[in-house]
């Protein structure tokens, strides 16, 4: 039986929780699981990773290149030590880019955003989630696993850890970090998102969304109409076909009609709440909970209720 390799999602030497979901997805492909934990000092993350159930061995991969993302260097480091077999990682922006490179360097196919594994049949969304495609594996592949789909594996394992050092060549250099205008969470990182559309009336009304986002630990997103209409709303906030694709546990759409291109970016959210004054807006057909009301009426009550609940 061939080996299954999992590339852990590690940010600043901290293991991301989503790795447990990837381990669980990998378990349905086979039971000889090797977990690679990359970092500039990956030891403690590797220690945590070794407790995931089902893992046979952990490789703590130390390389200075992991200080900043450089897909060519990271790929070089990882492919030099990863055994043959299927390789699975996260479908974060970095995960997808790195996986695409790893696939080529391993002479295999890349399948992004996997949502189901059934034997050798792998399912992933296409056409912006308007259809699901199932492909059959005829050889080793690289897959990225959508978050919030697979049940995370438990802890209680005790895998052996080996330490490996590599030193890969950086191919691009970071000149400077241009800090974000605010310290706010990015929509692609958030587990709860509240987004505003043209129905918000003016960019200053987004303050109401920020107030609620602060209570929920959420990120604030926007529709393209909001981004195109108001300079104050940057494109980095845009969710949809030509913006970001998000997959949070909870997505709250406020004053957004629910155009097909907006849905393309958020329809796979676990729960969708819509607040819109027009009961016929298409967004209500996709919402788990719809509130037909103006945001001027609904948001103050929402903020107050969340305040009472979450402090």
């Amino acid at each position: 039986m061939s080996e299954i390799i999992i590339l852990a999602e590690v940010i600043n030497n901290t293991l991301k929780e989503s790795t447990a979901e990837i381990v669980s997805a990998a378990s349905s492909l086979g039971d000889s699981l090797t977990l690679i934990v990359p970092g500039t000092s990956p030891e403690s993350a590797a220690g945590i990773a070794s407790t995931y159930e089902g893992i046979r061995s952990v490789i703590a991969l130390q390389d200075d290149c992991f200080a900043n993302f450089d897909s060519a260097a990271w790929c070089e480091a990882i492919s030099s030590i990863a055994p043959e077999g299927h390789l699975l990682t996260s479908s974060s922006a970095i995960g997808k880019e790195l996986a695409a490179r790893l696939a080529v360097s391993r002479n295999s196919t890349i399948i992004q955003d996997v949502i189901k594994i059934d034997g050798q049949n792998i399912t992933h969304p296409i056409y912006s989630g308007k259809a699901h495609q199932t492909v059959v594996l005829n050889g080793p592949s690289v897959m990225t696993i959508r978050s919030n789909i697979f049940k995370p594996t438990g802890k209680g394992g005790n895998a052996s850890i080996s330490n490996v050092n590599t030193s890969s060549n950086l191919r691009a250099s970071l000149k400077e970090m241009v800090a974000k205008a605010s310290e706010r969470l990015d929509v692609s990182e958030a587990d709860i998102i509240i987004s505003g559309g043209r129905g918000m009336g003016s960019p200053s009304n987004f303050d109401k969304l920020y107030g609620i986002a602060d209570k929920l630990g959420a990120a604030v997103g926007a529709s393209r109409a909001a981004v195109d209409t108001w300079d104050e709303i940057p494109h980095s906030m845009q969710v949809g076909q030509t913006g970001k694709t998000v997959n949070p546990s909870l997505y709250i759409a406020v004053g957004i009609s629910g155009a097909i291109q907006h849905l393309a970016g958020m329809r796979t959210s676990k729960y969708i709440v819509a607040i819109n004054k027009d009961g016929t807006a298409p967004i209500f057909r996709h919402a788990d909970y719809g509130i037909i009301a103006t945001w001027e009426e609904a948001l103050p009550i929402l903020e107050q209720e969340l305040g009472a609940l979450l402090g």
Binding site: S71, K96, E97, A103, I110, Q112, T245
Partner: peptide, 8 residues
């Protein structure tokens, strides 16, 4: 929606 081709 893959983003695979450029890096690949």
């Amino acid at each position: 929606n893959a983003g695979s081709t450029g890096p690949g």
